[in-house]
Design a protein around this nucleic acid. Structure first.
Lengths: 255, 255
DNA sequence: AAGTGGTCTAGACCACGTT
DNA sequence: ACGTGGTCTAGACCACTTT
């Protein structure tokens, strides 16, 4: 077995054309990512044990471990000593707060009340086509919702999703569902948001936003533009949020 | 040697009073953090090789490696194959962009021009006392600077530092220095900013800010409150920034 | 050639959770 | 008792950099 794996690494290393050398554990990691992307293991489920994976890929447990370690560091997998290694799911508080950065200035976070304002299927405009890597003419699902805390409207989210990935998504489904949106996407559409890039600005509230958020026109809002990515690192959500930040703030850690 | 280290781990594990078990590599990591905090190795310098550290701590190279791996993942150390492992320094482009989140909406980042507006030593107010864990009556260095890009004022930073750690810090020194502020703190005062927590809000420009930033009063500004920490995880900077975000935005990654 | 970090293996034992 | 992940060791070899 030692020989087999060494040969494999050496083969990759010495491949003519010098296709960039990649260590065995990176190759394993890519294979695991592929399985996750194909839904071989669903969010919340356990993946095979390290020894099983080592046998499957013909490498040592240590090599599998290093691949899994990296995926766990990226929060795609969660290790539980004595139980196994599990696929991350948005149906958990811990992971949710990685994507929900709004926190109250004082006191404990309260659950948000969500109201779906609209949910339409429209042709992608140029911005969506570019950000979501669509073809011109493709459709997107355009959702607008308002989040309130203790009855105070605080967030307007404009969410755009590729139409072909979210076929049965309707306002009714969204309204009937309580819980994290990404949890719904994950279980009902097999789309897992794994990471995101955001751009933040301060902008004045226009007439429409000021009415929805119950603030004066011109009130400074925190505008958050987010692009979310799946396992395969494909963009699948363009979300534009506008936050009222008198009682809440956006928290961030620099490491 | 194997015996020695096993005994050490076992001793820690079985210590009466059950002082929380911590694995050997975590103990090593803590020792390394202590050395960094004491300035035993300065930013930019190489730390001893893994084999040297293994000998010093009487553990295997693999255990040292795991400790160093974690510190490298936190960007406190930087590994360079064939050369050694080095202490991170703010005198490098890569690390700077971890703390400088403002990016132009279009085009390449340009270097900022910094103008020191004031630098005074004052008594810490309640807010500073709390955030910087000071005693009431302690002094802080209060700095205000304006950052401009291509002549356009874009950022006002109000920076507060514990007076006792920054004794020789004057407006002249700040003005004569070009380069990252954290680089100056690091080399001249032995204070390394290692991580930070930020809170973001959108606020209207008041008269003072509108004059300094050359925008209309009430213009939405992105307000960024930052607390920075050193190796020992002690807060040593309270910084409040106000950003004009028409040509620039704050970028963030959710992982 | 020598020294550094990087990868990979094999095996032992520990801690945790379930059966 | 058993299976899981977690820690630690020892040794081999590879890749990169400097001498």
């Amino acid at each position: 077995m030692a020989e087999a794996s060494r040969r494999r690494a050496t083969a990759a290393l010495r491949s003519p054309g010098a296709a960039a050398f990649s260590p065995l554990y990176q190759q394993i990691k890519a294979l695991l990512l592929g399985s996750l992307d194909r839904g071989e293991w669903k969010p919340g489920e356990a993946i095979p044990s390290e020894l099983e994976l080592a046998a499957r890929f013909q490498v040592s447990q240590g090599t599998v471990r290093k691949a899994v370690d990296e995926l766990a560091a990226e929060h795609l997998l969660i290790r539980r000593q004595g139980k196994g290694t599990f696929v991350s799911t948005h149906h958990e508080a811990r992971i949710r707060f990685r994507f929900l950065r709004l926190a109250p200035n004082a006191g404990e976070p309260k659950p948000a009340e969500s109201k779906i304002v609209e949910c339409r299927r429209v042709r992608a405009n140029a911005e969506m086509t570019r950000h979501l890597e669509l073809q011109s003419g493709d459709t997107v699902v355009a959702i607008r919702r308002v989040l309130s805390f203790s009855g105070t409207p605080t967030v307007i989210d404009d969410i755009n999703l590729p139409g072909n990935l979210f076929k049965g998504l309707t306002a009714e489904l969204l309204s009937s569902y309580s819980g994290p949106l990404y949890g719904l996407f994950e279980t009902d559409f097999g789309v897992s948001m794994v990471r995101a890039e955001e751009k933040l600005r301060a902008v004045p509230a226009d007439a429409e936003f000021s009415a929805l958020l119950n603030v004066a026109p011109g009130t400074p809002l925190l505008r958050v533009e987010r692009i979310s990515y799946t396992y395969a690192d494909r963009p699948v959500e363009l979300r534009i949020g506008h936050y009222v930040t008198d009682q809440y703030h956006y928290r961030n850690s620099l490491n």
